[in-house]
Amino acid sequence: MALLETPQLGTVDYSEETIVEFAEGLPAFETQTRFVLVERTETAPILFLQSLDNAELCFLTVPVQAIQPDYELTSPIEDLRDLGIDATTQNEDMLCLAILTARADRPPTANLMAPVVIHRHTRRARQVIQTDSQYSFEHPLGAEGASSGC
C-alpha cells in the first residue's frame, strides 16, 4: 500500500495494482499519467479521479450510465485497442466515466462527448473525444436538464 496526501481528499491509500495509467495523459494535463479512483460513501456516486503525479489534480467523475442509462460509445474500437479493448471485450470489463464540471452560476454539467474509458483489467485508460457523437461536452445535470428530456 502507498499513501498520498491530497488537499481535497485528505490521505488516499492505494495499492500499485489499482493505478490507472493514461499513457498520453488527459487533454490539458498531458504529463499526468498515473491516477487512482477514489470512492467515498459520503460523496457517492462520485468517483474521484485523483492524479498520483500531482496531488492537487483531481477530477470528479461519475459512470456515464448514471447519467444516460442507454449511453453508447461511438468511438471506433481501433482507437481503444492499445487499452486492451477489442470487439470481444465485455461491457463489464470497461469503465466509462463522465468528467463533471460545477460552476457557481449554473447547474453542473457532465462531459458525455469525451468520456474517460478504463479497461478494468489492464488498468489502461484514455479520454476519448467523440466529435461525431450526439453527446455534449456540457450535458446539464440541473433540474432544467432533467425536465427538458421529458
Binding site: 490539458a28 460523496t43 457517492a44 477530477f59 464540471t101 460545477a102 460552476r103 462531459n111 456540457e138 445535470l141
Partner: peptide, 23 residues
C-alpha cells in the same frame, strides 16, 4: 478547456457537496 474548467471545483468542498446533492 473543458478539463481545466472541471478541476476548478475541487478547491471548494461546499461545491463538491452541492454537486453530490444534485447528482
Amino acid at each position: 478547456e473543458q478539463n481545466r474548467a472541471s478541476t476548478v471545483v475541487i478547491a471548494e468542498p461546499a461545491a463538491v457537496a452541492r454537486l453530490v446533492d444534485h447528482l
